[in-house]
Structure formats: structure tokens, C-alpha cells
């Protein structure tokens, strides 16, 4: 359906925006390495089914490979910045202070409690859903502490939030046309959207009222 396609495309757009900008400008200003590392973990644990070779469609398989590849490439580019622009890298690391163990640990426990089947594949899949829902927190934490967001960060988070928002009408659509209600995805998806709404609210206020950028 249209919501699903548009959602996936904005997800793809968010990563392309990030990749292209970092590649072109060699700037990682305002980007959280921790959030990016969490996304690599999210994609690798979610798309483990690629290894079973029970592929659903060309679209599905290709997108999964692109998401894994692009997220790893982002990390590579950030690491390249380490040698190229040591000062900017150090500055980024000094501000990227969120403790990700407080996200990974609880997500692992939630995956053990909420899953469809107690198998490695299903546990990893559930873990990836929980982790994705909170993976942006180090990034938002960084923004709230610096009090300002660059164009790159803003566009990136905007595209990511759009992807999340579009998945909601997609689920409603699928519920009515296919009778499908996948509770884990819906719940973690709503949780993730709620986190983004905070960003959107502040962004809206900043754009409309021209006030300084701040997150509660």
C-alpha cells in the first residue's frame, strides 16, 4: 500500500541524506555515533532471516541489504572523520555521552518477555523492534544538551520521523484489508513515533516562532 511504500522510501531517504552529506562535507557535526551503532545492531538482528534464504520478494531482500550496508557505511564514514578531522571527532565523542547499556539491556529483557516464538530468530527480531524504538535517544539527548540542531541532523530526523508516522496508516490499512494486526510492531512503532513527536513539536515551535532549539 501507498503508506508502506512512502514510509520505506522516507526511511531510505533518511539514510541517503545522512550518507550523502557526510560523504560530501566530511562533517559529522551533531550526529550521534551511538545512535548510528544502535541502528547497525537493529538492522543486523532484524534481517537475520536473510541468512535462511527464505526471501519474500526482490524488494524486501534488496531493501534489507541496502539498510544493513548503508548503516555500516555511515559508521565507516564517521571513523574516517576520526583521522581526517580529529578535533571535530573528539568534539562529537565528548557530546555523545548517552549510556547505551541502559537501552540495550532492557531491550534484551523485553525481547525475552515479548516475542512470538522462543527461537533465536524471533528473539533477535523482537529485540530489534524494541531497540529501534529507542535508538534515536542518544541523538535526541545530544541535541538537547547542545541546544542546537544542524540542517543535516534536522533533515535526517525529520525523514526518520516521517517513516515512522507513515507506518501507522499502513497498519490501519492492513488491519482493514488483510485483517492483520501485528501487535509487537504496532506497539514498538507507536513508542518510537511518540519519541519523535517530541522532536517534531520542538522543531515546529522553532520554525514557526523562530525560538531557539531546545528539547525538554
Amino acid at each position: 500500500n501507498i503508506f508502506r511504500i512512502l514510509g520505506d522510501l522516507s526511511h531510505l531517504a533518511s539514510i541517503v541524506i545522512l550518507l550523502r552529506t557526510v560523504q560530501k562535507t566530511r562533517q559529522v557535526d551533531g550526529i550521534s555515533l551511538k545512535t548510528q551503532l544502535l541502528y547497525v545492531l537493529v538492522f543486523c538482528t532484524r534481517y537475520l532471516d536473510l541468512l535462511t534464504f527464505r526471501w519474500k520478494s526482490v524488494y524486501n531482500t534488496l531493501m534489507k541489504m541496502v539498510f544493513i550496508g548503508a548503516s555500516v557505511r555511515v559508521i565507516q564514514l564517521i571513523q574516517e572523520c576520526k583521522t581526517r578531522n580529529a578535533v571535530a571527532y573528539k568534539d562529537m565523542m565528548a557530546r555523545d555521552t548517552f549510556q547505551i547499556k541502559y537501552l540495550v539491556g532492557p531491550c534484551a529483557i523485553l525481547a525475552l518477555v515479548f516475542n512470538y516464538k522462543f527461537t533465536v530468530l524471533e528473539l533477535c527480531w523482537s529485540f530489534s523492534l524494541w531497540l529501534e524504538s529507542v535508538a534515536i535517544l542518544p541523538q535526541l539527548f545530544m541535541l538537547s544538551r547542545s541546544g542546537k540542531a544542524g540542517t543535516l541532523t534536522t533533515h535526517y530526523i525529520f525523514a526518520l520521523g516521517l517513516y515512522r508516522a507513515l507506518y501507522i496508516p499502513n497498519w490501519i490499512w492492513r488491519y482493514y484489508t488483510e485483517g492483520r494486526l501485528e501487535k509487537l510492531s504496532v506497539f514498538t512503532g507507536l513508542l518510537q513515533t511518540a519519541l519523535y513527536s517530541d522532536f517534531f513539536y520542538i522543531y515546529y515551535k522553532k520554525v514557526i516562532k523562530g525560538a531557539g532549539f531546545e528539547l525538554p
Binding site: K56, K64, Y116, K117, E122, R180
Partner: peptide, 10 residues
């Protein structure tokens, strides 16, 4: 139940 295990979303 089996349909839910398909995980066809990204």
C-alpha cells in the same frame, strides 16, 4: 499466528 511470523515489513 504463522502469518505474523512472516515479518514482511522493514
Amino acid at each position: 499466528e504463522d502469518k505474523l511470523l512472516e515479518h514482511d515489513e522493514l
